[in-house]
């Protein structure tokens, strides 16, 4: 049990350090904090609102399922992470489609590379866990599915960015007078 706690704590610390390294490397001015302008902050506010309601609705649904004793073949911790990923996904996709995702000091290309690496790593790791028989244990989707959820989340973000890259081509033409 102690080993498990140490492992989780170590994972969290490494995750935070990795995030800090990514932020410092991928932000043009070397700052950890991403800067947004007033319009982006307004959009991000709406994104947070939709993410909040997504989490609220999903928590309500899973609570109802629990009360009615309808049990899904998914571990409890995976359900929590699924709710987190869904709300993060809603927030991020809304921001991407409305130009509120990339901050003023973000190096978009570097972030995209980091995101692709992290996304592919998660998908690859979940495939390894599946082959190893640790993704589905006794017919229940185990906590190892967190990598699959993360991988799918990054995939969704890339699809949103791909869609946005097409719709924003019209805007670029407006630059000329």
């Amino acid at each position: 049990m102690n080993g498990r706690i140490i492992g989780v704590a170590l994972g969290l610390v490494l995750g935070i350090i990795l995030c800090l390294v990514v932020f410092v490397t991928a932000n043009k001015n070397g700052k950890i904090k991403t800067e947004y302008d007033e319009r982006q902050n307004e959009i991000r506010g709406k994104g947070f609102k939709y993410a909040f309601f997504t989490a609220l609705v999903m928590l309500g649904i899973f609570a109802c399922l629990d009360v009615t004793e309808i049990y899904l073949p998914i571990s409890q911790a995976t359900i929590y992470m699924f709710i987190v990923a869904a709300s993060v996904g809603v927030d991020a996709v809304y921001n991407i489609l409305n130009d509120g995702y990339w901050g003023l000091n973000n190096d978009k290309k570097k972030y995209e590379i980091f995101m692709a690496i992290i996304g592919l790593f998660n998908l690859g790791w979940s495939l390894f866990m599946y082959v190893d028989g640790r993704l589905i244990v006794d017919g229940v989707l185990s906590f190892a599915a967190i990598n699959l959820i993360c991988g799918i989340l990054f995939l969704v973000l890339f699809v949103a960015m791909f869609i946005k890259s097409f719709s924003s081509k019209d805007d670029e033409g407006e630059d000329m007078v």
């Binding site: 319009r39 003023l104 805007d171 407006e174 630059d175």
Partner: peptide, 29 residues
């Protein structure tokens, strides 16, 4: 738009949105 955006510290998309009438800027901007 990019140059104006940099000069006032906002994104190019924000300048574009103001010109298109999609966004009402604050008095400071």
């Amino acid at each position: 738009q990019e140059e104006l955006a940099k000069a006032v510290g906002v994104s190019r998309q924000t300048i574009n949105a103001i010109e298109k009438g999609d966004y009402n800027p604050t008095i400071n901007l």
